[in-house]
Amino acid sequence: MSASSIAPCPSCPPCSPGHRCAVYSSSSLTDEQWAVLEPLLPPPGNTTGRGGRPEKYCRRLILDAVLYVVRGGIAWRQLPVEFPPASTVYGIFARWVHAGVWRRIHDALRDRLRVRSGRDRCPTAAIIDSQTVPGADTVPRSRRGWDGGKRTNGVKRHVAVDVTGLLLGVVVTAASIQDRDAAHRLLAALRGSFSTIRLIWADGGYPGRLLGWAKSVLALRVEIIKRRPGSTGFHVRPRVWVVERTFGWIVKHRRCVRAYENRPDHHEAVIHIAMIGVMIRRLART
């Protein structure tokens, strides 16, 4: 990934005259995207000149660096020299994971897209599925597992999306965890975030006690979308194709092709950042 041009950054603090930001065509924020994203960021640590040092690097450049890592799949230490130091970028990434910033930005963008498409901000139905990805050597053994069906040693992402494919929730587990077991955590988190959801669509990997538990405890009706009788190989199934398309959006970001993060919450944040990149491009086009 090479820089297409170098331009002054309009968001750089006045204390850094002449600072120039790298513009990478596949990951850097455009002016329209930054205008959408900037109001959603948390307030700086020093806004009144008291209580700590002012921020040294402009936030737009920090976000460009994070998006560069997620889109390009590189290690943090391999950030180009045009960006702030890797330790600074990763420190802000981790601090915002702990504070829930990435999730709040993601949810705000998702709500805006739903309203723009004529839907209510809160969905009434969702589709759930899982995706197994191999784990890199940075993922400790205690956080990975063997998925016998996919013959993969790594982690599993359990996601819930709305009927348009926008992400509603994600839970990352070891790949050895069965879908129906992880679905308890996913559905509980979904119910905690959305009191309006009543119907869940899922594929054949979620049978058994999950259906009764979801109905009696969470007031959720789980409808299983089964394969056509006698069918072999891949075929498009109603509703399930929506979440499969969302997985396709996510793995276009190379950091999401494999599991590199050694913490599940960091992995979940990377998925949120990937979807932020997808949504902000849509919002900036209008």
Rank of each mutant, 00 (worst) to 15 (best):
A7G: 09
A7T: 08
P8C: 14
C9D: 15
P13D: 08
C15S: 11
C21E: 10
L29F: 15
D31R: 13
E38V: 04
G52D: 08
G52P: 05
G52C: 06
P54Q: 09
K56R: 12
K56F: 00
Y57N: 10
C58H: 02
C58E: 08
R59G: 13
R60H: 03
R60G: 02
L63G: 03
L63A: 05
D64M: 07
A65L: 04
V70A: 14
G72M: 11
G72D: 10
G73E: 08
W76L: 15
W76I: 08
L79E: 14
P80C: 14
V81M: 10
E82D: 13
P85T: 00
T88F: 12
V89C: 09
V89L: 09
Y90Q: 08
Y90T: 01
G91M: 09
G91T: 00
F93P: 06
R95C: 04
R95D: 03
V97I: 05
A99W: 06
A99V: 00
V101T: 14
V101F: 06
R103F: 15
D107M: 12
L109A: 10
D111L: 07
L113W: 01
R114V: 02
R114P: 03
V115D: 07
V115Q: 08
S117D: 12
R121F: 09
C122G: 04
T124K: 15
A126L: 10
I128E: 02
D129Q: 04
Q131P: 02
T132N: 05
V133Q: 10
V133W: 01
P134C: 05
G135L: 06
T138Q: 14
V139P: 02
P140F: 04
R141Y: 00
R143T: 00
R144Y: 01
R144W: 01
G149I: 07
G149N: 12
G149S: 08
N153C: 12
V155M: 13
R157D: 14
A160D: 02
T164S: 15
L166G: 05
L167T: 02
L168K: 14
G169W: 01
V170W: 02
V170L: 11
V171W: 07
V172E: 02
T173S: 11
A174M: 05
A174Q: 13
A175P: 06
R180N: 02
D181Q: 12
A182D: 04
A183G: 07
A183H: 09
L186P: 03
A189C: 07
S193T: 01
S193Q: 11
T196W: 04
R198E: 15
W201K: 15
G205A: 15
Y206H: 10
Y206G: 03
Y206I: 00
P207M: 09
L210R: 13
L211W: 00
L211G: 04
L218G: 06
R221N: 14
V222C: 15
E223S: 09
E223Y: 01
E223Q: 10
S231N: 04
V236P: 02
W241D: 00
V242G: 09
T246L: 12
K252V: 07
H253L: 07
R254N: 09
R255W: 11
C256R: 13
C256A: 13
V257S: 11
H266D: 10
A269Y: 10
H272S: 09
H272W: 13
M275L: 14
I276E: 13
I276P: 06
G277Y: 11
V278A: 07
M279H: 12
M279Q: 13
R282I: 10
R285H: 04
